[in-house]
Design a protein around this nucleic acid. Sequence first.
DNA 1: GTTTTTGAACTGACCGGTCAGTTCAAAAGA
DNA 2: TCTTTTGAACTGACCGGTCAGTTCAAAAAC
Lengths: 208, 208
Amino acid sequence: MERSSTGTGGGRRQATRQKLYEAAVTLIAEQGFSATTVDEIAERAGVAKGTVYYNFASKNELFEELLRHGVGLLTASLRDAAEETERRGGSRVEALDAMIRAGLVFIDRYPAFTQLYVAELWRTNRAWQSTLMVVRREAVAVVETVLREGVERGELSAEIDVPLTAAAMVGMVLVAALDWQSFQSERSLDDVHSALSLLLRGRVSGNR
Amino acid sequence: MERSSTGTGGGRRQATRQKLYEAAVTLIAEQGFSATTVDEIAERAGVAKGTVYYNFASKNELFEELLRHGVGLLTASLRDAAEETERRGGSRVEALDAMIRAGLVFIDRYPAFTQLYVAELWRTNRAWQSTLMVVRREAVAVVETVLREGVERGELSAEIDVPLTAAAMVGMVLVAALDWQSFQSERSLDDVHSALSLLLRGRVSGNR
DNA sequence: GTTTTTGAACTGACCGGTCAGTTCAAAAGA
DNA sequence: TCTTTTGAACTGACCGGTCAGTTCAAAAAC
């Protein structure tokens, strides 16, 4: 028996699953879930169709595990950025700034996953809706926590609405990054980070 | 003889096309383009399948025209908001604020369309990609123009990167609104508008 | 004003093709 | 030996698109 955990580790099985994730994520990002066939996924992964069904119960389950895997990476990365700032004694605004950068780095590294996540997040009536809600909550919670800490410490205005502001921040990072990659790919990650940082720090219109 | 123009008017044909748009937009928003069948669209519109093909060359074309139609409404609404502010002698920041509200109102009225637009916008390799690029450009241009005017008049920092800031603003409105509807539906439109207005005006973290 | 004609709009059964999922014997790895 | 992968064959459901036929309001004819 092979260990069946979901580590990053090096079992033969894990390697196959990883290849299938990578094949599935780009194909589904490009075409959508329904338009992507299992045959295509297997072919791009360089694997037989039977192997897909040896490793995953169904096309749906492959996708759900892919979702969990990807958002898990993002959440860990955001948490790291926040904790690293904390360790350095940085302010909460700096922590938010670091999380923005972490988000951009993640999107830069996994553009297909991001695209696919955005495309599915607000859909209703889909089999994996509950899975998606769970992972979304985990990711948003990281942002909300830092916002709340900022308010407590007086760094952020007490007027702000934490859940809505968190959504808005996630939105500006997500859309700016996807737009950057699709329509403004000549810009650098630093350019995008600067633009978002300016907005976060209220230096677009708030200061004089 | 029936008139065959593409007005908003009341011909029988236009009425049928409108019903097909409405049926298609909700189904595709819920399930995605590929997962939505022409039979479903026809059934929800209360029309025979053949009628779909009498009015549109293909499933693809129905979708593309739907896209053009919807983004056209949004663009007009944003432009109205900006011009109305101008007419009142309002500042460019006020114009941006009015456009945020107009965006929220639009999303509130056409949630399915918004959802579908977001899900498709960054997809590659799709038949309607070029159509989407065209309509996107029209919509973003409205925001960019107002930002540029704001910089010229010294209302907005000269440091800002117009295209990236425009993308970020669109993103915060889009994601905040979709999140509001999906996960925070108890909030009012004014709540969401206030939260975004605060961010735009730099009163989240920028002022002391 | 009544009858006839016209043709745009609509209908729905049907067809060719595709796809998810299953199975399994045999090969490849460890 | 035991696990994992292979790849081809098969099934049954489903789907986009077609097309011959129907409907009906308005124009034409008388």
